[in-house]
Write a protein that binds this DNA or RNA. Structure first.
Length: 432
DNA sequence: TCTGGGGTCCTAGGACCC
DNA sequence: TCTGGGGTCCTAGGACCC
């Protein structure tokens, strides 16, 4: 019998913040989205206070102060570094590893027939807590969906000591009977409404429905979930290959009506996409740009613009992507609206090693130059911090002598950001 | 004043082809 | 009155995930 383990950081962002703030252990902690917009992560204590996910910060500010909730702006540099350390430990401890998201990884536990899986999981969780300071829960079962259920038990009941194993049919049935159907991996809001409307409340109720009925009502994805709950392993362990599309988008702290200012933002997002492409050794053929007005401001005229451009030759050079994105922006921009959000998506992604050069656009010298330039820029930005070197179009100097050129990162509000303890020398902790 | 960001897969329906 | 049938590809939108 094959087993899967899901290893999942508990309240990941909040726990990352606590790694260097042990005084906050046991206290409510929340992490905010970009621009300190809304709550995107909560510690267990914050959840117990009834703070909902996605709640706008400005509506909670007072309540947070009263309840002594520690508030942090999101610090993805810190979270990326802490979780990388966690993932390294999991990778070392498991036969086959695949990272599923920033805070989760699946392991395929082949060849561990002689191991006590419960003991293995408990040890791994203890090791990560000791070495990195991150609490991790582990669920182990014959399918990924059941492992996710087990993980939930490991998280919610301290008696499991951070690891829950479903390895018999009795345990499976008992777990599913205690498990609300809406919390099953793969059951979202729409399916939940549908199921609960039919009186199907637990994962067990769902698992007992006839397979054909499930397929008719919930299509192949619902059928897969049903099979997995019944113990049939059918969600493929995909190779964490290259992404098929890459998106960089932001909401602005205020609103932007000026084309030049907007084009600075779009240039930055395009440059980020190009960087991400190079990092996974890919090129894209398609560049897409969208701009949206603030849909909360129903008193203002609304507009959502979206347009695409195809590159003559698939590419990942910053200059090429930025050029295409600005071309899109010109096409989609309408004067007279105040924009709140913009983004660049690159799609039709393929391997950089197999680029077919287009004859019309054939200029090997130009490509070679751009790519060498990007290599140097990437290196400098890695060494000296991102956005040390940027294209001119990424720099916007505000008119009327507002003074300083607005940098990409400066455009985002983050009043409660913690130091980058592990990635910047100037932020390193000093013992006094 | 202030309301996140980044992905995947599946399906239905239209365009188009023979 | 009578006006085929079957296949593929593409795209928009829905649903889900973290």
């Amino acid at each position: 019998m094959r087993y899967y383990a899901i290893c999942d950081c508990d309240s990941c962002y909040a726990s990352c913040e606590r790694v260097f703030r042990p005084d906050l252990v046991g206290k409510p902690v929340v992490v905010l989205s970009n621009n300190d917009g809304c709550v995107v992560a909560r510690s267990k204590e914050a959840k117990q206070l009834g703070i909902p996910m996605g709640m706008p910060f400005y509506q909670m500010r007072e309540r947070f102060a009263n309840a002594d909730v520690a508030v942090f702006s999101s610090n993805y540099e810190l979270y990326a570094d802490i979780t990388r350390r966690v993932m390294d430990i999991i990778r070392d401890a498991s036969p086959e590893f695949y990272r599923y998201s920033i805070d989760e990884a699946f392991c395929v536990l082949d060849g561990m027939e002689n191991f006590d899986l419960k003991e293995w999981g408990e040890q791994l969780s203890r090791r990560i807590l000791k070495w990195v300071g991150m609490p991790v829960s582990i669920g182990i079962a014959p399918t990924k969906t059941l492992a996710k259920c087990a993980d939930r038990f490991a998280k919610n009941y301290p008696g499991y000591r951070h690891c829950c194993v479903i390895d018999t049919d009795e345990k499976r049935k008992k777990a599913l009977q205690l498990f609300p159907v809406k919390e099953v991996w793969g059951i979202g809001r729409r399916h939940r409404e549908h199921l609960e409307g039919l009186g199907i409340m637990t994962a067990y109720d769902f698992s007992m429905k006839p397979r054909l009925w499930v397929k008719k009502e919930f299509h192949v994805t619902g059928e897969r979930t049903w099979l997995e709950l019944n113990g049939t392993d059918c969600i493929p362990t995909e190779e964490m290959g290259s992404k098929k599309s890459i998106c960089t988008s932001r909401s602005f702290p205020g609103m932007i009506g000026d084309f030049t200012e907007l084009s600075t933002q779009v240039s930055n997002y395009a440059a980020r996409c190009a960087e991400k492409l190079r990092k996974q050794h890919s090129v894209c053929h398609l560049v897409m740009v969208f701009i949206d007005t603030n849909h909360f401001r129903t008193d203002l005229p609304q507009y959502e613009g979206f347009t695409t451009a195809t590159l003559l030759t698939p590419d990942n050079a910053t200059q090429s992507i930025v050029h295409a994105a600005l071309h899109c922006l010109k096409a989609v921009f309408r004067k007279g609206f105040l924009y709140k959000r913009a983004g660049v998506i690159v799609g039709d992604i393929s391997d950089a090693a197999h680029v077919q050069t287009n004859f019309i656009d054939f200029d090997a010298g130009r490509y070679d130059k751009l790519h060498r330039l990007d290599k140097v820029i990437d290196k400098l930005n890695k060494l000296e911090g991102s956005e040390t070197v940027v294209l001119a179009s990424q720099q916007y100097t505000a008119p009327q002598g507002k003074g300083k050129a607005a940098h990409f990162s400066d455009a985002i509000k983050h009043d409660y950001r913690s130091p980058n303890y592990t990635t910047r020398w100037q932020d390193i902790i000093v013992c006094k």
